[in-house]
């Protein structure tokens, strides 16, 4: 049962890689990395059950959080083309 789930997850990971390789626009690639991260989280959880040690589950949860942060950073990069406001003179005046 879990073996079938793991196989399905691996197939899904392969398809995400294909999309990241081909992806004509950047958003295809961002989405594929995000999907891939989710599949990794699920795969680790399933591996935990396959090895009869479901205590991997909380680690899979932390992975999900990291994946979220990365996606937000990438999207922010695209929205503003840099990652944050630099500490410069103008900002100090605004405050």
């Amino acid at each position: 049962m879990f073996g079938a789930v793991a196989a399905a997850l691996l197939v899904a990971m392969g398809m995400a890689i294909i999309r990241a390789l081909k992806g004509p626009t950047v958003f295809d690639r961002i989405l594929s990395v995000n999907t891939f991260g989710t599949k990794t989280v699920l795969l680790i959880a399933v591996i935990g059950f396959l090895q009869k040690r479901p205590d991997f589950l909380d680690i899979a949860l932390v992975y999900a959080l990291i994946n979220f942060i990365t996606t937000i950073a990438v999207l922010k990069f695209f929205e503003f083309s840099h990652l944050g406001t630099p500490i410069g003179e103008e900002e100090a005046e605004d405050l």
């Binding site: 890689i17 992806g23 690639r29 891939f36 991260g37 990794t40 795969l43 591996i47």
Partner: peptide, 27 residues
Amino acid sequence: AAVMLLGIFSLLSASLYALLDAVDVAF
């Protein structure tokens, strides 16, 4: 695209570490 693929690469190696029971290294 290379940066995105490197992210995928490191997620793959993290799953391999998890398979090898080195969960903290994977993390």
